[in-house]
Amino acid sequence: MGYIISLGVGFGVGLLYWLLKVQSPAPPLIALAGLLGMVLGEHAIPVVKAQFFAQTATVQVADPQQASSAQKPATPSATKKGG
């Protein structure tokens, strides 16, 4: 599958070169700009995904009666096992 994607992207870049009338192989500055774009794009994808799919923490307000019973320490007899 990777080969097909690579072939498609290469075809798209070749088409773009033809539309922009860039020599092939590209002059060094154009080639370096393209390589820089690939590196930046490779590192930008995880950053963009993290921004769009970041999970926000939600805070729930507990019922006051449940909160007061949860704060009471357990009695020793409640933790003992029968014997």
Rank of each mutant, 00 (worst) to 15 (best):
M1S: 15
I5M: 09
I5Q: 11
S6A: 14
L7M: 07
G8I: 06
F11H: 05
F11N: 03
F11L: 14
V13S: 00
G14Y: 12
L16T: 10
L16V: 11
L16Y: 07
Y17D: 05
W18V: 05
W18E: 08
W18S: 09
L19F: 14
L19T: 10
L19I: 15
L20M: 07
K21R: 10
K21G: 03
K21C: 01
S24C: 09
P25D: 11
P25Q: 04
A26W: 01
L29Q: 10
L29G: 02
L29M: 09
I30N: 02
I30V: 13
I30H: 03
L32M: 10
L32W: 06
A33V: 04
A33L: 14
G34W: 00
G34D: 02
G34L: 01
L36S: 04
L36V: 11
M38C: 13
M38T: 13
L40P: 04
G41P: 02
H43G: 06
I45P: 00
I45Y: 09
P46C: 08
V48Y: 11
K49S: 10
K49I: 13
K49T: 13
A50V: 06
A50L: 04
Q51A: 08
Q51P: 03
F52G: 08
F53P: 00
F53C: 03
F53T: 05
A54N: 01
A57I: 09
A57K: 14
A57R: 11
T58K: 09
T58M: 00
V61Y: 09
V61G: 00
V61E: 11
V61I: 02
P64V: 12
Q65W: 13
Q65F: 07
A67Q: 07
A67R: 11
A67L: 04
S68L: 12
S68E: 15
S69F: 02
S69K: 14
S69D: 10
A70I: 14
A70C: 06
Q71E: 06
Q71T: 13
K72M: 04
K72Q: 10
P73Y: 04
P73G: 08
A74H: 01
T75V: 03
P76T: 05
S77E: 15
A78T: 11
A78D: 13
T79I: 13
K80T: 12
K81M: 02
G82A: 06
G82M: 02
G82T: 07
G83Q: 12
